[in-house]
């Protein structure tokens, strides 16, 4: 090494051995491509009296550094996602409501007025002019277009961030639905603790309470309805498809929360299961009512009342 100071490049260089925070910060932030015999160098430089003391300090400093990094990561991730998806929904809903108002109003001065956020964008960008000096309509159009842009940006954030917060859930459900489930449950940890029967009806709470009060059939599915596995299945079998999907989502949420490891096999398992279910209505006589058989299907805690099949 060409470094002259004997400790150069070591995490302890310039660090006071009694200053735990400084040591932890150096561990987190310093870089060094070439390892050296740090214990010997640390003792040689007087950082520690002997190897034993060096390792004792290293233990404290690495532990402190890892704790700080873990807490930071935990704070940053799923809470941010929950806020982002809720804000995205609010922006979209508000933009659509205002766009309706805009269409009605613009229709009074322009017989060819369009509808929706797209029409607001056309007005806001000046691709279309209204036959009036009234700035109020154009100003409303700008507001709608801006809200639409905000919603798009939030959606991009959600699509980018969900796979790091909940990789398995994101790959199974798609990032936006995954983020919605996390949001409805109130966080990834809460979602990971929910039985699959509850996940199946998340987002259908109104229908579920009506059912529990005895005036309605139990809902077959909540927000997971938007997933192709459910929507693409014949209505007669949607309850089974929703149950199978919810079972895999429950496993994915648990793996994401408790280990963070990728389990790419979950996707294949879901596809197989859904194909089997769809085959029942596809002219096949398949009578194979297979349970996932992996313990995912918490039938005992299932929120369904059994009227869905």
């Amino acid at each position: 090494m060409s470094d002259d100071a004997p400790t150069a490049g070591g995490w302890f260089a310039g660090v006071d051995p009694d200053d735990l925070e400084a040591g932890a910060t150096a561990i987190r932030e310093e870089r060094q491509a070439t390892p050296r015999d740090w214990p010997t160098l640390a003792v040689g430089s007087g950082f520690a009296d002997d190897e034993r003391e060096y390792y004792d300090i290293l233990k404290e400093a690495t532990t402190r550094a890892a704790e700080a990094a873990v807490s930071e990561a935990e704070r940053a991730d799923d809470r941010q996602l929950v806020h982002a998806i809720r804000a995205m929904d609010d922006c979209e809903r508000t933009a659509n409501e205002l766009a309706e108002r805009l269409a009605e109003w613009a229709g009074t001065v322009d017989p060819d007025a369009g509808t929706g956020i797209e029409y607001a964008r056309e007005l806001a960008d000046g691709h279309r002019e209204l036959d009036t000096d009234d700035r109020r309509i154009a100003s409303l159009a700008e507001r709608v277009a801006d809200l639409g842009d905000d919603a798009d940006e939030l959606r991009e954030f959600v699509e980018r961030r969900t796979p790091t917060v909940a990789p398995n859930l994101a790959s199974l459900a798609g990032p936006v639905l995954a983020a919605r489930l996390i949001s409805l449950a109130g966080g990834l940890e809460n979602l990971a603790k929910k039985p699959s029967g509850t996940i199946q009806v998340l987002g259908a709470e109104d229908a579920l309470f009506a059912h529990l009060r005895g005036h309605a059939p139990s809902p077959k599915h909540g927000i997971i309805y938007v997933h192709d596995a459910v929507r693409g299945t014949h209505p007669d079998e949607r309850g089974s498809a929703a149950r199978a999907l919810a079972g895999k989502l429950a496993i994915a949420a648990r793996v994401d929360h408790y280990s963070g490891e990728r389990k790419p096999e979950l996707e294949g398992e879901l596809t197989d299961r859904i194909e089997t279910i769809q085959a029942r209505t596809g002219g096949d006589t398949a009578e194979d009512d297979i349970d996932p058989g992996d313990g995912s299907d918490d039938a005992d805690t299932d929120a369904r009342g059994g009227t869905d099949e």
Binding site: W11, A26, I27, E30, Q32, T34, D37, W38, T62
Partner: peptide, 12 residues
């Protein structure tokens, strides 16, 4: 990215 822990993990 071993350079992110080369200042902590000893050689050999």
């Amino acid at each position: 990215k071993p350079e992110t822990y080369g200042h902590v993990v000893e050689s050999n």
